Computed example of a mutant assay.
Amino acid sequence: MNGPKRTWQQVKIKYKNILQNAVKKNTHRQGTGGGSPKADLTPAEDMALELNKGRPVLEGIPGGKETSIGSSQDATRFIQVSGSTVFLLEPPAQAPDDADPDPDAIQWENQPGNISSQAIRKLYGNHLRRQIELADIDIQYKKKKMENLALESEIKKRTIRKLDLEIKKLEREVRYAFNVHCMLTVTQMY
């Protein structure tokens, strides 16, 4: 443990980067037909590919077939579409094309760092429920804000009406005072 200290998030990103590079190299080698795909992999990339062996692959064209030298895996067997809803199906313990004759083979869900699709569904369901709750709270907040704005608007309308009435009252008082002044002036002249 003399290397750099990393948080679990940094380790996760590092692992994803290693796996992504390994898959890229592996795909390139298979696509060009050039020799063994593991020839230019680093030990870390080789280990990452081995740990992810048997995991469902959701790449390519749904319903399409793999034409490379490697095994064919149809991504659509893990996806079901009904109307506008997409369902993720539970993958088998091991992908059928990569069946390992070894009875002690480890299921991919049980390998370190892997999460079963049931756990992912549960986490995603919880996330969606929380998003709905937050949206409901936001809607309630905005309704209250609109009610407050409506009340403020009504108060301002009534204040304007009150000021208009006060102006009319003052105008009448000024006219009355002017008329009284004029009458007094006229009576004083006579």
Score class of each variant (00 low, 15 high):
K12G: 06
N110D: 15
D98E: 15
D40Y: 08
G70N: 11
P91Q: 01
I115A: 12
N52K: 05
A48F: 01
S84H: 10
N52C: 11
T7C: 05
R55M: 15
A48S: 12
W8Q: 10
E90C: 10
S84G: 06
T27D: 15
A105E: 15
L19R: 11
E90Y: 04
G63Y: 02
I79P: 00
L19Q: 03
N26M: 10
F87N: 08
A39N: 08
A105P: 00
I69S: 13
S71D: 11
K25F: 02
Q30D: 11
S116R: 06
D46S: 15
K14C: 07
D97A: 15
E45N: 02
R6A: 04
L51H: 07
G34H: 08
G3Q: 08
G35V: 04
L51M: 14
Q10M: 06
P96V: 01
D104G: 03
E66Y: 07
L49R: 03
P4Y: 03
K65N: 13
R55N: 13
I79D: 00
R29C: 15
G70L: 08
I13K: 12
F87A: 04
Q20E: 13
N21D: 14
S84E: 14
S117M: 14
Q20C: 08
I13N: 05
R55F: 06
P4G: 03
L49M: 07
T7A: 00
V11H: 05
P37E: 00
K38F: 13
D46L: 13
V81E: 05
P92Q: 01
V81N: 00
Q80W: 01
K65H: 12
L88R: 04
S68N: 12
Q80L: 09
T32M: 14
N110V: 02
K12E: 12
E66K: 04
K14W: 08
E90R: 11
W108R: 01
V23A: 09
P101N: 14
N17Y: 05
A22L: 01
P62E: 06
S117N: 09
F78K: 00
R6D: 03
D98G: 02
G83I: 12
A75D: 05
S36I: 05
E109C: 07
L19S: 04
V86I: 15
D100R: 07
I13T: 12
E45F: 01
I69N: 08
L58C: 10
S68L: 07
K16M: 10
K65G: 09
P62Q: 06
G60A: 07
F78E: 03
S71M: 09
E66M: 06
K38V: 09
T42R: 07
N26Y: 15
Q10W: 02
E59N: 10
I115T: 14
Q73N: 12
F78W: 13
K5V: 12
E59G: 10
T67S: 11
I61E: 15
R6I: 10
G35L: 01
Q73V: 14
G60N: 08
P43A: 05
P112R: 09
T27W: 07
D97N: 06
P96Y: 04
P43H: 04
R55W: 03
S84K: 13
G60P: 02
D40L: 10
E90W: 01
A44W: 03
I69R: 10
E90L: 08
Q111S: 08
D104I: 01
S68G: 10
E59Q: 12
K12P: 03
Q111F: 02
G63W: 03
A44Y: 06
E50D: 14
A22C: 02
A99D: 10
S116N: 13
K24Q: 11
Q30T: 01
K16T: 09
P62T: 08
P43M: 05
